[in-house]
């Protein structure tokens, strides 16, 4: 688990890949009570909203970015701030990899600023993000 004196700007956080399925997307949209048809109705999504396929929720990718931070941090600190934005749409069948690296360390405040991003299988960034954590040690 991270300790302030062992970290350097540029260090990478462990990345994790996600390949959503119809079932996982259904459960996510049920959990957040999102009935937008672009997440479960393929003919509607393609014909009416002109997407090439079922759309992977942007906020789900945001959550994966938060998990990159939380799983690295464990119980050795706390998440103070988190942000992300949706840059490109992703579709069912894509493999999305969430990762991050250390951007800056403030030894006095014991805070670390992290740059985050989700990339698709083509290497394109679909969701950039940023987080600030405070470390316990």
């Amino acid at each position: 688990m991270p300790r302030l004196d062992q970290l350097q700007a540029g260090d990478a956080l462990p990345a994790r890949s996600h390949t959503p399925t119809n079932v996982s997307l259904f459960l996510y949209n049920a959990a957040v009570w999102n009935p937008h048809r672009i997440h479960f109705d393929e003919p509607y999504t393609v014909e009416v909203e002109k997407h090439p396929g079922i759309v992977v929720d942007g906020p789900l990718q945001g959550d994966w970015l938060s998990q990159v931070v939380l799983d690295w941090l464990g119980e050795d600190g706390e998440l103070l701030e988190f942000e992300y934005s949706n840059r490109r749409a992703s579709y069912l069948g894509d493999t999305l990899t969430a990762g991050g690296r250390i951007e800056a360390i403030d030894a006095v405040a014991r805070t670390v600023t992290l740059t985050l991003e989700v990339r698709d299988q083509h290497g394109e960034v679909t969701a950039p993000g940023r987080a600030v954590v405070r470390l316990a040690h």
């Binding site: 909203e49 929720d57 942007g58 906020p59 945001g62 706390e78 998440l79 103070l80 701030e81 988190f82 942000e83 992300y84 934005s85 949706n86 749409a89």
Partner: peptide, 12 residues
């Protein structure tokens, strides 16, 4: 009329 999600920033 067509809506896209933008992004969020949260402070805990």
């Amino acid at each position: 009329k067509r809506v896209m999600a933008g992004g969020i920033k949260q402070r805990y």
